[in-house]
């Protein structure tokens, strides 16, 4: 695999993993290592918001890479995938890698989606006591749910509908995982905050 793509996969994979495991006690000490020492003794929910930001960062990173590959494939070749690999097979067909009706490329769609989710998570991180926290979490859950549905659809296209299918595209799979993790985070946060207060554990 091309080195830069491998580096992106590792970085985004780690940030998503951080997001997924942010609620575990084992990861609590890691927050001070990451310069978020103030969160070490905070409730699980506060750490999960920071974790969601991590997952979103990983999602944006992989979405940017998918979009760059899609843009390069406009002229028939990309420098970011091994020629003949699943990455090329999955993303080279522009007509299959767009959102229906809008024509918006998957990569660009996920960049915009994760930006909105990032704004929601960052707002909650900066002001956890915001009066509209529950509404923000609700929107986060809805949008990340929609993003997960689109990511699943994208994966189905790659596995069943493109030429040379099934095409396994590692960056796209990381993008799918980022969506699932982000959705799970927002869902758990919404559930724990549904009584109007954050989880105190």
């Amino acid at each position: 695999m091309i080195l830069s793509t491998t580096v992106v996969l590792v970085i985004s994979g780690l940030t998503i993993l951080f997001g997924a495991l942010s609620r575990t006690e084992a990861l609590r000490p890691l927050f001070s290592t990451l310069g978020l020492g103030s969160l070490v003794d905070e409730p699980i929910s506060r750490r999960m918001i920071a974790g969601a930001l991590g997952g979103i960062l990983g999602g944006i990173l992989s979405a940017v890479w998918v979009w760059v590959i899609q843009r390069q494939e406009i002229i028939g070749s990309t420098s970011l995938c091994i020629p003949g690999s699943g990455c090329v097979a999955a993303l080279s067909q522009g007509s299959s890698n767009n959102l229906p009706f809008t024509g918006l490329e998957f990569g660009l769609f996920f960049i915009l989606l994760f930006s909105i989710l990032g704004w929601i998570a960052l707002t909650l991180h900066l002001d956890p006591k915001a009066s509209n926290a529950l509404r923000l979490l609700s929107w986060g859950r809805i949008l990340s749910g929609a993003g997960t549905a689109v990511a699943v659809w994208m994966t189905i296209i790659h596995l069943a509908f493109v030429d040379d299918s099934p095409a396994i595209c590692p960056v796209c799979l990381v993008l799918l995982v980022a969506n699932i993790v982000t959705f799970a985070q927002f869902h758990l946060l919404y559930t724990s905050h549904s009584n109007g207060s954050w989880n105190d554990k």
């Binding site: 930006s115 909105i116 990032g118 704004w119 960052l122 707002t123 991180h125 900066l126 002001d127 915001a130 009066s131 509209n132």
Partner: peptide
């Protein structure tokens, strides 16, 4: 609330 949202908006 607005301040946090605005700051987050600028960052994003």
């Amino acid at each position: 609330d607005g301040s946090a949202a605005t700051t987050a908006g600028f960052v994003i």
